[in-house]
């Protein structure tokens, strides 16, 4: 509600002045005060009509955007639960499928060992039972594919040297920043105990954060990458940039799926929400500190070992 009030004020204020001029002019005109009030009336009415028009347009546009965002949010929630749903269904179907397959085999065996009898179309029965087996196998392939799709999203925990993994990703991004006025500063804690985490998942998170940092900097700037081990074994990785920063009102939505402030076609608005999802699955946290105009710092915190058994 507060937000729409602010919005109303933002779009309302520019035409409040002309509207006052219009009303004031009208009042003076009624008293018969000559040509200046008349000019004020004309001038004010034109400006305020324009203001009202732009207010209506922006309100409609805002509504449309909100509706779009709702749909997209729903979509991404759907995607996230799709994996679980798929795995569940595939599991449930696999058991009866196995029984059907076994029974069909048994029927086939019975039929083929049965002595031929008058009036029993044995050949057709056999063919029919075999077809059941073939189709059961087809279903089994489908459920296996579904299961592997769901499993693809599950993290696999391996021993990881965080500094090395981070440095690998930094090097990749550095090939793009070289000679473009962006300095990369490494501040890795050495030595650091390896942690148990999902290496490709963490790589994806790092690449996304580094790439965002690079894109946040216009012209010259600096990206600092820090790694720290906390006393309890947790590890923090921070990516700090001296870029444009994130406006305060965007901060609560920065990890939402499809939220983007990048130019059209430059970002899908999925990067940070994917990072959030991955870090979540790794049992960690991700957060951001940002000062508009000064830069942003994204921090990823990971446990030394995942809490739940993998």
């Amino acid at each position: 509600m507060l937000k729409s009030t602010i919005e109303l004020a933002r779009y309302g204020i520019p035409w409040l002045g002309p509207a006052m001029a219009f009303l004031g002019g009208l009042a003076l005109l009624a008293e018969g005060k000559g040509q200046w009030p008349a000019i004020a009336v004309i001038f004010g009415s034109v400006l305020s009509a324009g203001g009202i028009y732009s207010l209506l347009r922006s309100l409609r546009k805002g509504e449309k955007e909100r509706a779009l965002l709702d749909v997209r949010m729903l979509q991404s929630h759907k995607l996230a639960s799709l994996g679980e749903l798929t795995a569940g269904i595939a599991h449930e179907i696999n058991n009866p499928l196995a029984i059907i397959g076994r029974e069909a085999e048994w029927l086939e065996h019975l039929l083929s060992t049965m002595p031929p009898a008058e009036g029993v179309p044995r050949k057709e029965l056999l063919e029919s039972v075999r077809e059941v087996g073939v189709q059961v196998n087809r279903c089994r392939e489908i459920t296996q594919n579904l299961l592997s799709f769901a499993r693809k999203m599950e993290p696999i925990f391996q021993k990881v040297d965080v500094n090395r993994l981070v440095e690998d990703m930094v090097k990749l991004v550095e090939t793009e920043t070289q000679g473009k006025g962006i300095e990369i500063v490494r501040d890795y804690q050495q030595p650091m105990e390896p942690i148990m985490t999902d290496p490709p998942g963490l790589r994806q998170v790092m690449l996304n954060l580094l790439n965002n940092a690079r894109q946040a900097i216009e012209g010259r700037g600096q990206i600092t990458i820090r790694t720290r081990a906390l006393e309890d074994g947790r590890v923090q990785i921070a990516v700090e940039d001296t870029g444009c920063g994130i406006p305060r009102e965007h901060l609560p939505r920065i990890f939402d799926p499809f939220f983007t402030t990048k130019a059209h076609g430059k970002g899908t608005g999925l990067g940070l929400s994917i990072c959030h999802g991955i870090v979540d699955r790794l049992g960690g946290r991700i957060w951001v500190r940002s000062e508009p105009g000064l830069g942003s710092t994204f921090v990823v915190e990971l446990p030394a070992t995942p809490k739940r058994a993998s």
Partner: peptide, 23 residues
């Protein structure tokens, strides 16, 4: 295997499920 590293194709590759890259 990346010829001269490209961030975009690196990110895309990781997103598509690559385990790692080597320059």
């Amino acid at each position: 295997l990346t010829g001269h590293g490209s961030v975009e194709s690196g990110i895309e590759g990781m997103r598509l499920g690559a385990f790692d890259y080597v320059m």
